[in-house]
């Protein structure tokens, strides 16, 4: 039975006539994103025994700046998992990312769960109030995340050296691909797109910024895809280093 309420047609009881599998996308997001969060939390809290498999270091722990690090820069006195000092930066970047916001507002907050499917929360303020107001500072998460990416490149390069010898291992390639994916993810960011030139009205007057803006815009079109690929791959990289470090797998490598 359907009735009109407040000038709007309301069809009880489901509130949507969508009969397709609209719930599938939020469900997959919950599983993959939730799985990633659980895994990283576990790796950060309990996984500090196996994050280094000479010469590879897990991206969750790099740059390793705590004094209790197995390898790395070691200058901050620290008694907990060294990952806490570092992983917060990429996590803050992902948490406030325009794409991930879409993903978790839809799948975790059901606001809305899918298009033309009613919001679960009764009242809605969007990003006008705390805590979501903080999302406006996403650009401040961009720079630290970029610095971390620079260290991941250093790790990737170090991944080709073994006790003074050049080497190529499967791990070297994994680290390299990871650095590449995370660089692409960071550079395809919407805030980056704004900062390199999007803020200008007269792009024609600034040829360098215009070119940069064009490049970033191209990457930005694929931001969602890159976000997922880099997310899954960074977790895979950690798993790989962890298994190699624990001796579960033997890293195939050629040392020159």
């Amino acid at each position: 039975m359907a009735t009109a309420v407040g000038g709007k047609v309301r069809v009880a009881p489901r509130g949507t006539e969508r009969a397709d599998l609209w719930w599938l996308e939020p469900l997959i997001t919950v599983v993959v994103l939730g799985g990633f969060v659980l895994y990283t939390t576990w790796a950060m809290v309990f996984g500090s025994d196996h994050y280094f498999a000479d010469p590879y270091i897990s991206p969750f722990f790099s740059p390793c700046i705590a004094t209790n690090c197995v390898d790395g820069y070691r200058f901050i006195p620290w008694a907990f998992s060294p990952a806490f000092l570092i992983a917060i930066f990429p996590l803050a970047f992902r948490l406030t990312c325009y794409y991930y916001r879409k993903a978790y507002y839809r799948s975790f907050f059901w606001s809305p769960p899918a298009c033309a499917v009613p919001d679960a929360p009764k009242s809605y303020q969007g990003e006008t109030r705390f805590p979501f107001l903080i999302q406006n500072l996403h650009r401040y998460a961009f720079w630290p995340a970029l610095v971390v990416v620079v260290f991941l490149w250093i790790d990737a390069i170090k991944g080709f050296a073994y006790h003074g010898h050049f080497m190529i291992g499967l791990g070297s390639l994994v680290l390299l691909a990871n650095a590449l994916l995370l660089t692409t993810y960071s550079l395809s960011c919407h805030s980056c797109r704004h900062l390199v030139g999007g803020y200008l009205d007269m792009l024609s007057r600034h040829p360098l910024r215009y070119r940069l803006w064009r490049r970033v815009s191209f990457l930005n079109e694929h931001h969602m895809l890159i976000a997922w690929c880099s997310l899954i791959f960074v977790a895979f990289t950690d798993v790989y280093v962890r298994l190699a470090s624990a001796g579960v797998i033997l890293d195939p490598r050629v040392v020159f």
């Binding site: 325009y98 916001r101 879409k102 507002y105 839809r106 606001s111 809305p112 298009c115 033309a116 809605y124 303020q125 969007g126 990003e127 006008t128 979501f132 107001l133």
Partner: peptide
């Protein structure tokens, strides 16, 4: 215009 109300969930783009 309340731009802050938009939580960039992209349904407008989808339709």
């Amino acid at each position: 215009a309340g731009l802050g109300f938009c939580n960039i969930t992209k349904c407008c783009t989808e339709v």
